[in-house]
Design a protein around this nucleic acid. Structure first.
Lengths: 94, 94
DNA sequence: ATCTAATTTCGATACATATAGAAATATAGG
DNA sequence: CCTATATTTCTATATGTATCGAAATTAGAT
């Protein structure tokens, strides 16, 4: 596996993460303004998504590098990594 | 469903199309240079993908608006729609 | 009309994944 | 320590999808 393949691998992860309605909405929420939102904030803005499901989606978005996260007590605040968004999916940004 | 939702719907389709290794490779092949390739050309550049599978992938890439296509006899030549790529996935472009 | 090549459609199968509820973990506060 | 809250992990299930081979379709060439 050379460098190109590796990059393709990451791009696939990014696009797979964004290619699902709930996750894309989460990404758009997080890209919108400078809001840093925690898991339950996001849950409040979506309709009827179980916490465990949300956690799974956030993990996928974070694992591909699309999200920055900051721990604060029991909370984890998420925001989009703008460099990644710029490179792979500027559609996310204003 | 309002205009925003509709746009999210298209974006999901685009990212879902790109979020699969074979399809992303196809998109990169088609974005690379001004090559217009037909289905069998693409098959020749990938390893062991059945024609029916290739057809399925190309349909998905075309249906979300990522590809331009030009029929010529029994051939169909594909290229990427650069406006779409610019908007959703500039990573595809040089 | 027949033949050949390109592509799509159909049917089946195996694998991936989105989802939820319940249990587990982590962390702050009393 | 105990409680409450935030988040994750576990387990199960239902749906989605990537893949192929075979059959069907399409369009040019002989």
């Amino acid at each position: 596996m050379d460098a190109d393949d590796k990059d393709v691998g990451q791009a696939v992860k990014v696009y797979k993460a964004l290619g699902e309605p709930t996750r894309l909405k989460i990404a758009l929420l997080l890209a919108d303004g400078e809001n840093n939102l925690c898991c339950s904030d996001i849950g409040g803005k979506l309709e009827s998504v179980a916490g465990s499901t949300l956690s799974h989606h956030l993990k996928q978005l974070a694992d591909c590098g699309l999200l920055n996260l900051r721990k604060d007590g029991t909370y984890i605040f998420y925001s989009v990594n703008r460099d990644m968004a710029q490179k792979y999916a500027p559609y996310l940004l204003k």
